[in-house]
Design a protein around this nucleic acid. Structure first.
Lengths: 205, 205
DNA sequence: ATCAGCTTGTGAAAGTGAGCACAAACACAA
DNA sequence: TTGTGTTTGTGCTCACTTTCACAAGCTGAT
């Protein structure tokens, strides 16, 4: 039964990992998997997986485990990946190029629908099958119903781009620069800071 | 006074952000900054900053704040960045190329000293001033005293590369593929999973 | 139908981290 | 020297997260 208690942020973060695991198991033709077996693969504890999934309803069958394809489908719905999600990529530099062709997005039915940059040298060129467009024309994406953006620009330009994105109606930003973006509360930002992770590594060295 | 209590992992993760902030303030010529002013910049609460720094000793002066250049220097020591840290990059694909020229590393005195790949088409070519070497010759890095590796290969190859790295004496791995690496306990792994962050974003959309 | 063997879902406990509130300490003015 | 205003360092409390332990429920064999 679906609970109304608040779902922990950490649980949400793990859901894509579960989805990946269930998708892979489905491709291998496995019909069921127990929390214990899955925990072995993902290097988590079994109760954590059970509790995480239970926040969204009763996924499993006692004595049997979790039905692989059905659970994968339900997690896709939870993450809104049952419908193809379009995203816009800002920045066609080296990082943007890498992102544009990142194979990991495809598995999630994730689709980069447009690429923007501010460099005249890049505008008009092709990248991953898309024509790089002028960032000044960004407001045009409003009609395309794109709600997500991936921001792969230097940190100096990050805030300016973020403001443009918000004005263009974007609802979520994946920020790959080490800067904090000031956006309205309705817009969700997730930042990945390479140096931050590297620092962790160095300390424990 | 230096505490002997265990330092929270989350504190460690924030240290590189503090270092970046103090470095920038130093370049601007500011001599002191209070936890309140710094909290405003980093979007944290002042007590968090004070508590984080206090784990490593008494950095500040009451009534004045934190001495910018001195604190930056001490954080560099804590993160072992007072000596230039060499790292090896595995994977010269699009992501590897982006990493090789990522400007964020330079600020931290971080130095990519060698690049390896398994593709005959890439071996021998130049990337960011370095010649791409055959991954089969990876054991050669042992003499160079490189302790860190950045793993930018497809997830299928990640575990095989990680094993090679461990055998070559690497102590820390920054894993950019969405896979869990099985390594001896003495080796520290930090993974960045783009799809995981994206999933978070989608849920809150 | 009953029982043994698993596995899920979950209340409660333990562990971890964040934020408040205040004493201690410093600078500067009178 | 004393007083005012500021800022750090930290004990304590609250909130969040993980883990345990076990009842409830399913399967297949006897």
């Amino acid at each position: 039964m679906l609970k109304f208690r608040k779902i922990p942020a950490e649980t949400i973060r793990r859901m894509p990992r579960y989805l990946r695991a269930f998708s892979l198991l489905g491709q291998e033709g496995q019909a069921y998997i127990s929390s214990q077996a899955l925990a072995g693969q993902l290097h988590l504890k079994p109760p954590q997986i059970r509790k995480d999934l239970s926040y969204f309803g009763d996924f499993g069958t006692r004595g049997v485990g979790y039905p692989v394809s059905d659970t994968a489908r339900r997690i896709r719905e939870i993450l809104k990946l049952d419908v193809a999600q379009k995203a816009v990529l800002i920045g066609a530099g080296r990082l943007g190029t890498a992102i544009a062709s990142y194979p990991g997005f495809a598995m999630f039915g994730f689709d980069i629908a447009a690429i923007y940059d501010n460099s005249p040298a890049k505008i008009g060129k092709k990248l991953a099958g898309l024509t790089i467009q002028d960032i000044q024309t960004l407001s045009g994406i409003a009609e395309q119903r794109i709600r997500l953006a991936i921001l792969a620009v230097p940190s100096e330009s990050a805030q300016a781009c973020a403001t443009l994105l918000v004005d263009a109606g974007i609802r979520g930003i994946l920020n790959l620069s080490p800067s904090w973006l000031k956006v309205p509360k309705r817009v969700k930002v997730v930042s990945i800071d390479l140096a931050m992770e590297l620092g962790t590594l160095l300390f424990y060295l």
